[in-house]
Amino acid sequence: MSSTPHHLAEEFPEYVVQMRYLRETDGHFHRICSEYEEVNHEIHKAETDIEPCDDARMVNLRKRRLALKDEIYGMLTRVEPVVEDSDV
C-alpha cells in the first residue's frame, strides 16, 4: 500500500502558477482544491494507519480524489497560461 501523499503541486508541477492564480480568482476551483486536499489527507491517514478505515471507504475516498483531480486538471487545461512577474 502506498503512503505517498498526492499533493497537487507534485501531481501538476507544470501548472503551479495557474493553480495559485485560479485558487485566488475562482471560488469553485478553490473549493474543489480544498476538498481534494481534505480527501487526500484522509487517504494518507488511512494508508499510514493513523486512522485506519475499511476497504470500501478507502475505495470511495480514492474514487473521489480521482474525480476531483480530473476536474482540477480539466480546469487547468482550459485556462490561459499565467506568467509570473519576474524581476528583470
Rank of each mutant, 00 (worst) to 15 (best):
M75P: 01
F29R: 04
E10V: 03
H6W: 12
L66E: 11
L68N: 08
L22R: 00
K63E: 15
S34E: 03
P81I: 07
E84Y: 12
R64F: 05
P13Y: 01
S86Y: 15
C33Q: 09
V39L: 06
D85E: 10
Q18E: 13
G74V: 09
K45Q: 14
V79L: 09
I43E: 00
H7A: 06
M19D: 07
M75L: 15
I50S: 01
M58E: 01
I72E: 00
P52Q: 04
D70T: 14
E38N: 11
V82S: 10
E42F: 08
V82W: 11
R31Q: 14
P81V: 12
R31T: 07
T77A: 09
H6R: 09
I32Q: 02
V17Q: 02
M75C: 07
T48W: 09
V79D: 08
V88S: 14
E71R: 07
M58P: 00
N60A: 15
H7G: 09
S3W: 11
L22H: 03
L61M: 08
V83I: 12
A67Q: 14
H28Q: 11
M75K: 13
V59H: 12
D26Y: 05
H30G: 05
H30D: 14
C53F: 10
V39H: 08
R23D: 05
L61D: 03
E80G: 06
K63D: 15
C53W: 10
S86G: 10
L22Y: 02
G27F: 01
D87F: 15
E47G: 02
M58T: 00
E51K: 12
